[in-house]
Design a protein around this nucleic acid. Structure first.
Lengths: 254, 254
DNA sequence: CGTTCAAATATGTATATACATAATTTTCAA
DNA sequence: TTGAAAATTATGTATATACATATTTGAACG
């Protein structure tokens, strides 16, 4: 009797929808999409297991499997008796830190200051599209900023924001707040790519960083996507010896 | 009846052992330890679910949960009808590639050549212990090598291997095979840390890489652990523009 | 001798159920 | 009013069971 009930449910579902991805995976991606799209903001209480159980017409075990995985991957937080909540966008991944430069500078015991050098709004040109990984035209916001540690320049930031993905950025001044923290608090990212290399400082960069022309610099570029959509591309240029990128990795099964 | 059986089992286990970590997690770490310690080598067939079920006196669901997670984290591979097998050490993590320089060079369409410059065996000195993160003394093997792309030097490798962790390395010549691939095929790593920075080439490095003194270089350092034990530390120095480190990251719940 | 088809088998996903555990809310007495 | 005990609730882990699915093995047959 118990079995035949379950059986009927499975068959019903199979008939109703395409059941090629498993149910628990469908639940998982449904929830993940809602979080990543911003529909469910940080702090939002995800429906209780028993509610999802009803919505999907499945058992609690199935829902639990999906939610447990989301918790393990860090997208949600589960609290007994209270429910499951969307976590605020992880500001540092297990992997490569999405660094907040203010924190980096203050960790050195130096006062932090931020300065906006230039701000341009334009239709994406070829270079912009390449940087963002866009295939269609659209408005972008280009920013150039300087971060200071004490009185000395700490790094140059060269950023491009897709206004298609983040229209609110158009109304933002960025004269006080740096675009990095602003974006992080606003747009949950689902994927990121870093490219790290060394270059010799060109004339402009050398002047901005107050180093000798041609001296070695560390360049960190990051491209960020939210739900498959390009959000921002940023290039940080640091004078050598001022900065190192640290990445730790442990297979995540323990 | 079915319930009381399960019930009795749980109580038995609780009485017999400390049950503070959950059973499925105990199974998971048991297997993980055996793989990482090298007891179960790549290709080894892990006991079938029904065998583990007997060993741990639990249900298949519990064993399945542990094995599924190990599969998701990439440590094992599961094949229907055949069983679960230890995968060969992941040569590239989802995160930061543990790069095989030969492959990198050949991807550029250039012939690859490797040359051993120096090889020293010694008791670990202070610097060595610092590089490896060792707290006790022990024998280490220090290697210096050059990797060529065509006739031009591609990068300098400066490596330290803990002979406590890899005693076989003492008998290896490393005149033909580079230590990187040799180690990767032999020691499964459980954790890795990368530090990436830019420097100006010192006299020695400049000579080896055939670049101007003081020209910018990208330095990638990696420390590797196997089951909490330091295995190797390596520092790659590349002339700028010859190399970039690429890291991709997507939260792993999909 | 090879090809096809059926049995066997291990994993994959789902169910209903049970009890543990942590945290909040309610109740009730001092 | 406060403070301790009890009820409530959502998640955490485990069980027994069922059937699906992929793959190998082996048998039957042309």
């Amino acid at each position: 009797m118990a079995d035949s009930t379950g059986d009927a449910r499975i068959l019903d579902d199979a008939a109703g929808t395409d059941s090629s991805p498993s149910l628990y995976q469908r639940i998982l991606t449904d929830i993940r999409d809602r979080i990543v799209s911003g529909e469910w903001e940080p702090g939002y209480r995800i429906p209780f297991e028993h509610e999802l159980t009803e919505q999907y017409g499945c058992s609690r075990m199935t829902v639990n499997k999906a939610l447990s995985q989301l918790a393990k991957s860090g997208l949600i937080e589960r609290r007994r008796r209270s429910g499951s909540f969307v976590r605020r966008p992880q500001s540092q991944a297990a992997v490569l830190e999405i660094h907040d430069i203010r924190i980096e500078v203050e960790a050195l015991g130096l006062p932090y200051r931020y300065e906006l050098i230039a701000q341009t709004r334009r239709r994406a040109n070829t270079t912009d599209r390449e940087r963002l990984g866009l295939d269609v035209q659209g408005q972008v916001l280009a920013l150039q900023c300087l971060h200071f540690a004490g009185s000395r320049p700490f790094c140059v930031e060269d950023r491009l924001i897709s206004l298609t993905a983040v229209p609110e950025a158009a109304d933002e001044q960025f004269s006080e707040a740096a675009p990095g923290p602003w974006l992080i608090g606003r747009v949950p990212w689902s994927s990121a790519e870093h490219v790290i290399r060394a270059t010799a400082a060109d004339t402009e960069t050398a002047a901005e960083l107050n180093v000798a022309n041609g001296s070695p610099c560390l360049v960190v570029e990051r491209r960020t996507w939210s739900a498959e959509r390009p959000v921002t591309h940023v290039r940080f240029t640091y004078p050598a010896n001022a900065h190192a990128v640290v990445a730790r990795f442990t297979p995540s099964d323990s």
